[in-house]
Amino acid sequence: MIRDRSLSSRIFDFFLYLMCATVLIIVLAPVLNIFSVSFSSYEAFARGDVGLWPVEFSTRAYETIIKDGKVLQGLRYSLIYTGLGTLLNTCLTVLTAYPMSKKDMPFRGIISMYFAFTMFFSGGMIPTFLLVQKLRLYDSIWAMIVPGAMQIYNMIIMRTYFQTIPRELTEAALIDGANEWQTLWKIVLPLSKASIATISLFYAVGHWNSWFSASIYLSTSEKAPLQLVLRNMIFNTEALIQSGEADSNLGSTTISYATLFISMVPMMLVYPFVQKYFVKGVMIGSVKG
């Protein structure tokens, strides 16, 4: 590449750096403020001293959260839903995508259309809700896991990936006397670790961040995942403001900041490490999408 050192090029570079700085600030500043308030003393927050760094470092908000237990319980249930849900999602997706990637699988075209149609049209929220009730899943932890056991879109991404595995590899195994199950388990899965990790990550993010199904399928508030606990907390604060009792309780506001920060941390820590995989996943999806 020829390096351009002219004045206009330097001005252009300056604007590019300015853009980079702006993006960094706009994305990080709100997150930093949440972090700082949650680790600042209540008095410093009440004075309005806290900006982008903790003032009078304190973990009181977090101690209150641990003593109260509600947020911890939400955290526990979030982990259960995310763990179980992602496991079921990944198994079902791989199990469905593998046969669908086989050219000579009988009824492949029909089954393919059968799955694809549901991406364009759905029965909607209320019939699904009534179905969950009828199946006696209402208020059980399975209501959080089974109705969304597979995303057709992710299954298609997985299938597309399986199709890129050279046929010779699987056919050689079949000729050597392995059945399809053994081929999937011994040949295909070890070759697809990265894609399976990507798909699992997509599912895990979805479970961790989900709140709506919890809000309609669960009536026991003890089973609420962290996101729903957080949402109810914020709703109460907003209701207080609207009824004119604003800021009578700043202490509980710092607890909201801490809860919010806890809810963001796991995904923020994980995503940079799996970045290259999800970028690939988006690409495969967009080619087929």
């Binding site: 997150v31 961040n209 989900s210 996101q227 729903l228 914020i234 923020m268």
Partner: peptide, 13 residues
């Protein structure tokens, strides 16, 4: 990677 709930809570706070 931040949830909708978290983004809206952030706005509110």
């Amino acid at each position: 990677f931040i949830s909708l709930v978290a983004v809206c809570s952030m706005l509110s706070l």
